[in-house]
Design a protein around this nucleic acid. Sequence first.
DNA 1: CCAATTTAAGTCGTGTGCGATTTAATTGCG
DNA 2: CGCAATTAAATCGCACACGACTTAAATTGG
Lengths: 154, 154
Amino acid sequence: MNNAPPSVLERMLCFEVYSTEHAFSRLYKTLLAPHGLTYPQFLVLVLLWQQDDQTVNGLGVALGLESSTLTPLLKRMERTGLVARARDAEDERRVRVSLTEEGYSLQAKVKGIASCVADATGMSEEELMTVIASMKKLRGGLEASVRGGAKLPQ
Amino acid sequence: MNNAPPSVLERMLCFEVYSTEHAFSRLYKTLLAPHGLTYPQFLVLVLLWQQDDQTVNGLGVALGLESSTLTPLLKRMERTGLVARARDAEDERRVRVSLTEEGYSLQAKVKGIASCVADATGMSEEELMTVIASMKKLRGGLEASVRGGAKLPQ
DNA sequence: CCAATTTAAGTCGTGTGCGATTTAATTGCG
DNA sequence: CGCAATTAAATCGCACACGACTTAAATTGG
């Protein structure tokens, strides 16, 4: 077992979240790569499977991503035939993103992945709920701080 | 308040960690940019402030990063005068990374940042410890799963 | 009604991250 | 000893992710 005293880094929550996020990414990569999907692309599909035909902005708000990140990502998904992108007739500024047949049918093929990952965490359903709540609280505090114009004292 | 039922995404722990990590990154960016530092570069400095003169591999293990990520990052830090890189005389395969005077003196200037971020979380010391422990457990499970060759059932 | 403002996407440059591969140094085994 | 296997960095191509900026469309205020 690991009996070394925790380093400075290991006492920083930011680092624990940082490296846990990498661990999730790596696990998803091994599971999604066979389907030609990346992890952020998978998250976009999760949103579209729940509600098809969303705007770039809508997806961005849900994911917490900028259009400068989403536009290229969605273009890659369009190129691989998972989604279609079309200007909204009502408001030509908007671009609506919708599932292709292939994007839709991928749902069945990767259905098991989320629960597979949940298993990999080694946590009970209850524990998972607790950690999710912690993350939400944490994120809320951090976002409020960024919005409030975070500054060092003095 | 937010009374909408949680979407599929918001019930996925992976997404909560993903977006919380982004929130940390963004907050650190606002605090570190004035010092010409990025968040991963700051993490490297935290390690070097604790123990100067480490190998690329040592930093990589501590941070959970590959040399393909660290080498370019360390070269940027060398270019901005924060660290020096030199082949180890004992073993020419290794490259040792050490603090320059400037890299060392930056510690005083950004001393307050970690606690500032801790404040921003809006969590008590005890809560922070609990969440850190959760992340460690989570990461442990995920890494074990990746090492074990994670696969979808059938 | 139209000029100014706001909003939605997209573009560009920079900095991570990783897998696959390469190069060079060391180790280890017959 | 000598060569095969291993190890440490580095390189390369690709995919995020963001801030700053641009473009075009819609809204608003006078």
